[in-house]
Design a protein around this nucleic acid. Structure first.
Length: 240
RNA sequence: UUUUCGCCAGC
């Protein structure tokens, strides 16, 4: 089982989702080897990558038959994610609601799913839900919450999350948090704040430059945008 | 062996 799981996970990791799904099928032919929760989770992830909704539904049905949906977090979380990736948010929500126990990954997956499909408001509802339920938040949570604020244009909530990640020292140490923060302010039209955060960053990666530049292009003047563009080149960022 | 996260653009 471990060998099969490793291959399924590895193939979908490196973009060979089809091969991963073939491994899952081949595994069923083997004598004495039975898929476990991790097998189903890895295979569901491969389904998400490939957009193999049919296969995902098939595995979901099997999970229902085995009664694993409500009680197995690894399977439940993988189901939430595959439905999010396929854009079927209502079923993702339904699986989330049915889970007997939810961990931070269950919440993060749902918040991410809503945010990734531009449902900023729903994402923030569950982000706030984590706060009120006392679910521990990690950097993934904050990134998804900030992204949701950028979608809805809710700079006030975004500032609150900013204060929280600042308190935890994440802005200077986590470059994904940092660029998401710049992007959030840029999308909310607060380009001065975006610039201010950007200027304090220890490392300015191409994503944070692009977020700032896009912010000026959308909400700033032509002069500001071109100045940012020139500075980006002077900083030695390779343009694409 | 395991499920969740960032900018822009194309497909």
């Amino acid at each position: 089982v471990v060998a099969c799981n490793t291959m399924i996970a590895g193939y979908s990791d490196y973009g060979y989702g089809k091969r991963a799904l073939e491994c899952f099928d081949e595994m069923q032919q083997l004598e004495g080897v039975y898929p476990d929760s991790l097998t189903f989770a890895c295979t569901l992830r491969a389904c998400g990558r490939e957009g193999a909704i049919g296969k995902a539904l098939e595995i979901h049905a099997e999970m229902e038959r085995k009664g694993l949906v409500e009680i197995d977090l690894v399977v439940g979380n993988a189901l939430i994610n595959v439905y999010c990736e396929c854009g079927i948010l209502s079923i993702a929500q339904e699986v989330f609601d049915r889970l007997r126990i939810r961990d931070a990954i269950s919440w993060n997956t749902l918040v991410a799913g809503y945010a990734n499909h531009e449902h900023g408001h729903d994402a923030l509802v569950y982000f706030e839900g984590m706060h009120s339920q006392g679910v521990p938040m990690d950097s993934v949570t904050y990134v998804c919450g900030l992204k949701a604020c950028g979608i809805t244009g809710d700079g006030d909530t975004g500032s609150q999350i900013h204060a929280e990640v600042e308190r935890k020292g994440l802005v200077m140490t986590n470059h994904i948090i940092a660029s998401t923060l710049v992007d959030m302010y840029a999308k909310c039209g607060a380009v001065a704040k975006a610039q201010e955060v950007f200027d304090k960053l220890p490392v300015r990666d191409p994503v944070s430059w692009n977020a700032l530049l896009a912010g000026y292009a959308e909400h700033g003047s032509a002069e500001e945008t071109l100045r940012c563009y020139d500075q980006m080149q002077s900083a030695g960022i390779s343009l694409n």
